Computed example of a mutant assay.
Amino acid sequence: MLLTLGLLTTTTGSGGAPHPYVGMWVTADGRIRQELLPDGRYEEARDGRERAYTGRYTVTGSHLDYFDDAGFTATGDVRDGVLYHEHLVLYRER
């Protein structure tokens, strides 16, 4: 179900629970950590630099659109439980 919060559109799972993509995603080497927050925001840490990138995201099916606070956009897709975000490959942190 799509949930609209002001200008922000994000996705929730059934019963209003957070969408299954919400949480921490990490590259295999741990250098890049991207947290998808339940309010439709994300925070990305790179090489130990916390909040190197921040912004909002939307989910449509298995596709993600990112709108960075610095003004650029990016996309991602989840396939077989792996997040392919532009040139990055991220795995769910358990």
Rank of each mutant, 00 (worst) to 15 (best):
P18T: 07
P18V: 09
H19Y: 08
H19V: 02
Y21M: 05
Y21D: 00
Y21Q: 01
Y21R: 01
G23T: 03
G23H: 05
G23P: 02
G23D: 04
M24V: 14
M24I: 11
M24C: 07
W25C: 00
W25M: 02
W25G: 00
V26S: 07
V26E: 13
T27N: 06
T27A: 05
G30T: 08
G30S: 10
R31D: 09
R31G: 01
R31S: 09
I32L: 08
R33K: 12
Q34G: 02
Q34W: 10
E35I: 10
E35D: 11
L36K: 04
L36N: 02
L37T: 03
L37K: 13
P38S: 08
P38I: 05
P38D: 10
D39W: 08
D39P: 02
D39Q: 08
G40V: 03
G40Q: 05
R41F: 05
R41D: 04
Y42Q: 02
Y42K: 05
Y42G: 00
Y42E: 01
E44T: 13
A45G: 09
A45D: 14
G48C: 11
G48N: 14
G48Q: 12
G48R: 15
R51W: 07
A52F: 13
A52C: 07
Y53K: 11
T54I: 14
T54H: 08
T54P: 03
G55M: 08
G55E: 07
G55N: 06
Y57P: 00
Y57L: 05
Y57G: 00
Y57C: 02
T58D: 06
T58R: 15
V59P: 01
S62F: 11
L64A: 04
L64T: 01
L64N: 05
F67P: 00
F67L: 15
F67E: 15
F67K: 11
F67Y: 14
